[in-house]
Amino acid sequence: MESFKNDTYIVLDLPKKIADKVKKIRSEYSYTMSFPVEITVAGSSGIGVLQYEQNPSNVYTTIKDIALRTKPIKGIFGEVSSFPNTDVFFFTLQDEISIRDFHEELVKSNIKFLENPFPYKPHCTLCNNSSLVDIETQELLSKEISEEFILDTVSVYSLERKPNDNIDVSLLERVNLSGK
């Protein structure tokens, strides 16, 4: 099997009901995202994208092994926040422990990742918009989604950047969290 050719991320998928609410908020702030609504566990912070020169089937086997040991994760969004010195706004999570534990299992695994300069912060991106005025920023910071949700699938996505600034997203693998 060939190695990875594009930036490849590992994410926890949000359930459709919650994802639709996040999409609604994103649309209010003209944010179009390449990925579906998710919480990235490898690729954006903590550890970088998958190193290209490794066998994808070995990576998928390792992810499946971790998923078999990981029970579905209960989540509730916290407040909206932003990363320092950026225009990236996101939902925090009220309890990050289980997501951080999953991230740490990936870090300790035999999967190879590129380095990433940012510490790991579980989050769900809402907006990356430098043209927000103060009132829009305040409205965004006050957004809430208060229902509990279950993160029970992990997906591997590849992003292929096209010359015309378009990005093709490919789902490479998806497995259920099924630990007890």
Score class of each variant (00 low, 15 high):
30 S>H: 06
52 Y>D: 06
42 A>L: 02
37 V>K: 00
21 K>R: 06
41 V>C: 00
18 I>F: 06
30 S>T: 05
43 G>P: 02
47 I>V: 15
37 V>E: 15
39 I>G: 00
36 P>Y: 00
43 G>H: 04
56 P>A: 02
27 S>P: 06
51 Q>H: 07
47 I>M: 01
27 S>G: 00
20 D>S: 12
57 S>D: 07
52 Y>T: 06
32 T>G: 03
53 E>I: 03
37 V>R: 00
48 G>D: 09
38 E>Y: 11
54 Q>M: 03
29 Y>W: 07
22 V>P: 12
19 A>I: 04
49 V>I: 14
28 E>L: 08
54 Q>Y: 05
39 I>H: 08
28 E>F: 02
56 P>F: 11
54 Q>S: 13
21 K>E: 15
59 V>T: 11
20 D>P: 01
38 E>D: 13
45 S>N: 13
59 V>Y: 02
51 Q>V: 06
19 A>N: 06
23 K>W: 00
54 Q>N: 13
29 Y>R: 10
52 Y>E: 14
28 E>W: 01
43 G>M: 10
23 K>I: 08
40 T>D: 08
23 K>M: 09
21 K>A: 09
34 S>V: 13
46 G>K: 05
30 S>C: 00
46 G>Y: 12
40 T>H: 09
44 S>G: 10
18 I>N: 14
21 K>I: 05
44 S>R: 08
59 V>F: 03
45 S>M: 05
41 V>W: 01
50 L>V: 04
50 L>E: 11
40 T>S: 13
53 E>P: 00
32 T>P: 06
24 K>Q: 14
50 L>S: 05
37 V>T: 13
44 S>V: 12
25 I>C: 03
25 I>N: 07
29 Y>H: 07
35 F>H: 05
35 F>I: 01
52 Y>R: 12
31 Y>E: 14
